[in-house]
Design a protein around this nucleic acid. Sequence first.
DNA 1: GAAAACCCGACATAAATGGTCGTATACTGA
DNA 2: TCAGTATACGACCATTTATGTCGGGTTTTC
Lengths: 152, 152
Amino acid sequence: MLKLTKKADYGLMALKYLAEHPEKAALSAKDVADAYGIPAQLLAKILQLLTKHGLLRSHAGMNGGYALARDAREISAYEVIHAIDGPFFITSCTKGAKNCDLTPSCTIKEPLARVNDTIAGVLKSISIQDLAEHEQPAHRPHAPQGLVALTL
Amino acid sequence: MLKLTKKADYGLMALKYLAEHPEKAALSAKDVADAYGIPAQLLAKILQLLTKHGLLRSHAGMNGGYALARDAREISAYEVIHAIDGPFFITSCTKGAKNCDLTPSCTIKEPLARVNDTIAGVLKSISIQDLAEHEQPAHRPHAPQGLVALTL
DNA sequence: GAAAACCCGACATAAATGGTCGTATACTGA
DNA sequence: TCAGTATACGACCATTTATGTCGGGTTTTC
């Protein structure tokens, strides 16, 4: 159904939350989980994943927790999703692997691979910062920096 | 993981196959299934779904089978996927339903809804015809008719 | 050294997906 | 009119994937 997993959702929400509280040096997994009513242990694992992928910095001990490893503007939704759910492909069989077993099936994949690239491009153009300031008006005033053109 | 289900894949493949054989008045589910090595009964159900949604026309009896209800150019990948997998949303909680239960969660969904629209737009711009003529060179000669511009 | 945190693998449960079976119904042509 | 071909549809099962939990271990601070 082409939807994000809850884990990815949680991850994005957590990063957004961190971006919204820059005054705190670090927030614990529990803090964030409580703020959103997310299962704490599950979120913990997700944050650990994000840490391993270099999107977060962790610190143990009292008053420890997690903080963004980079500026919120420099972390894309794509990175988050990729870190949590792994590489995604819109088609089940993509070149690279030895899928599409015997049958000469999937003559479909080629055009859809471009769709895939497009989606990836869009997600890369969205930063955590964008998520944090979600009250922005529908019309962007200055420049279409996030503009993506695709010809398929 | 943001990927198409096999059913949707099968559906697209089948429509593509039908588009490639306009000389036949109709092809049976079995014909298509055999051509690609897809489980016949499963494909049958998929084609029935597509028929119910008006993308195919079916005909029982000998020499019966399925045929495109419209020109291959007039059927979008979006319609196919939508018919098979139902409406998709990139976020688990989307406005409309009473999701996002109690918690004030998902402040995420608003920006991602635009991603969703983008993806839908791209899929709508791809026709079965496009899939059928997948041997097209990478560079489109005349005009960017399938161009989609998005500013997020 | 106790408390607060992160770290991590194993497990349990739940839901979606993929696929099968059986049967009913519709159409065709000999 | 009957046999064969095909769609239509619902129920069911198997497998995988997603979600969530548990328990023990390590780091850091006070």
